[in-house]
Design a protein around this nucleic acid. Structure first.
Lengths: 355, 355
DNA sequence: GCTTAGCACTCATCAAGAGAGAGTGCTAAC
DNA sequence: GTTAGCACTCTCTCTTGATGAGTGCTAAGC
């Protein structure tokens, strides 16, 4: 069922024409505008074959033909082989630098770049850091009974949580407790912060000193209980309204259906978690699991920290997507994100020993 | 040019019918469905007068009539007098509580509540805190040359900034510097963090000790230079796609125009800054300055800290808006926001002296 | 003088039909 | 295997006419 060279050429011509124009492509167009050197009748025969093979469909009898998901898949696969980096790579790098210091802003910024450059709707997930190790813990007094817990991981990522204590802790004790917690918890993975660890640490601490026992106990409970909170993954999107630029969504109901799906972070996060964790992954049309996006393509790239995937960025648009451009843009972006993350957020210990 | 009681009654009936149905209202509808006790012909005469007075217009000759911005203004003004609090007030309060500890999440949450309950597109601006005083400053080591600066204001609001130093500061000095900075800067308004203050403080500090001079100097410069950064106001919105529910925006281009305007935070922030800082403020249709939203109404409430307006929440929708519901909802929300803010974020000193 | 029934008039909306145009599939010739 | 030619199909657009909602005006009634 291998496609002949000519069939492939025709198919490619149809795809690129359809991506550009958004209208069903006729045999005459291919024959004339793409310098095929064959007549429209021949093209018609080939197109008929391609339809039988499942690469094309006719919206109706007298219309031209439109590529199927299968055709896009073929096209995309061949694109993926040819590595291409966007000409905007330097520019992307420059813009990314602006927000490098704060991880969530950095990720948010990434989404904005992607939608600005591609004119599709973009998204980005903040890092999942279950496997990150604690490096530093600092308690900061906020008010009598409120304490801010600042956690710095070995990847230099910062998390904040405010606790409400039932009774006040003297401010001057907070530094001592911070030092104690840093000493005991540094090197421990976030995912390991649980009851058992708490008890173990409490035992150790009791054996050392007993002065701020109850308060410390309460603090530890709060710390452990909210450990999962540090893990809240946020989803940012940008350029939501870009979707409305595409004639596919000139029907408001259709646009509404898609936009609501994307805007509902919960469902959309689910959809994203389904995407394989390859460096660059593309889901075309029906390859998507959720009904609302079965006429969309999602292009996703991962970003890594110390070789572990911690998040995803990408974009969503109609299956008639400018894959070539999009792929090179997403590649460039994820390349730059990875570079900057590893320059700025690498596990300090590891970088000392490795470098 | 005072409207007769009957004209007012008819106008109100037309407005409420149009708000509900979204279709031009005919004289017969008013005469029959609203128990007016007068015939459609009489209503027609009155409607004709109302049109002449600028309260109604006809989309075309044989259509019914549609309220003008002037009519909505009249209607809204009378609504504003009658205080009404939404029946969901308790529920709102409960949901707001969930995110009370972190100001920005709290504000984001407010926007979500508003769009969920009203089915319009909502927005919320994070607080402007130029006039807030510093209470506590804590430096936290992130990596060799990276330092996290945590600022706690007297309102218990927390701000984070990461600095890149040119050279490393020994971690054990950070606490001492933090204490020094807290001592020197507490009580100082954020807006006062500038060069002159820096020099003044530096002089004082020099006179005390000279051990970590250059590093402290660099730190102070960074601190002062980024003072404006703490002030970055963020704009959140929620329920963007709700706009698509309204037949006014069944035309994708119209929807696109409005949505892009809202999504472009910069322009939308500008539009919001134009809204007066009253407790509750409503801009109807052409009362809006920007072309893109001249067919929309914006309902905005402010929230205050210690009596000073620090932010806004509200919603945007078609001029044919369910003002009654919306006003009571926004009122309830802003009431609850203000209550919770003042319980959780009140200037601690002031609350001690005032309370 | 206000109210109302009656009627002619206007205009959007909808459905049906005609015509144009784009594109196909098939056939027969090259 | 390729191509010209032609009949056929189907969408799209424009026109037309019918329908119905709603108005403005007039004249009669209270």
């Amino acid at each position: 069922m291998e496609l002949s060279e000519r069939k492939l050429k025709i198919l490619r011509a149809i795809i690129s024409s359809y991506i550009q124009e958004g209208e069903a492509v006729g045999s005459r167009t291919i024959s004339k505008k793409h310098n095929m050197g064959i007549s429209s009748a021949t093209v018609r025969n080939e197109m008929s074959d391609l339809e039988e093979l499942g690469y094309l469909i006719q919206p109706h009898t007298s219309a031209g033909r439109v590529p199927t998901d299968k055709a896009y898949r073929l096209y995309v696969n061949s694109l993926l082989k040819s590595t291409s980096v966007s000409k905007y790579s330097d520019q992307i790098n420059r813009i990314l630098q602006e927000e490098i210091n704060e991880m969530n802003s950095f990720i948010k910024n990434s989404a904005r770049i992607l939608s600005n450059f591609t004119h599709y709707t973009s998204f980005a997930m903040t890092p999942q850091l279950k496997e990150s190790k604690l490096k530093h813990i600092q308690l900061v007094p906020v008010s009598d009974k409120k304490i801010l817990l600042v956690i710095v991981t070995e990847n230099n990522i910062i998390k904040n949580v405010v606790f409400n204590m039932t009774s006040a802790i003297p401010h001057d004790q907070l530094n001592r407790i911070s030092n104690l917690l840093t000493a005991k918890l540094s090197g421990v993975k976030l995912s390991m912060l649980n009851r058992e660890l708490k008890n173990e640490i409490m035992r150790e601490i009791y054996s050392i000193r007993e002065s701020f026992d109850e308060k410390l106990d309460e603090l530890m409970v709060l710390l452990m209980n909210t450990a999962n909170q540090y893990e809240k993954v946020e989803l940012y999107y940008d350029g939501l309204t870009n979707i409305l630029n595409y004639p596919e969504y000139s029907d408001t109901n259709k646009a509404k259906e898609l936009l609501s799906f994307v805007e509902d972070k919960e469902s959309f996060t689910k959809a994203l978690l389904n995407v394989e964790g390859k460096d660059l992954s593309i889901l075309i049309g029906k390859e998507n699991e959720f009904e609302q996006i079965k006429e969309c393509s999602i292009v996703t790239a991962t970003y890594k920290l110390n070789g572990i995937i911690i998040g995803k960025v990408g974009l969503i648009g109609p299956t008639r997507m400018d894959y070539k451009n999009v792929i090179s843009m997403v590649k460039s972006l994820s390349f730059n994100i990875n570079k900057l993350i590893n320059e700025n957020y690498t596990d300090s210990k590891r970088s000392e020993t490795d470098g």
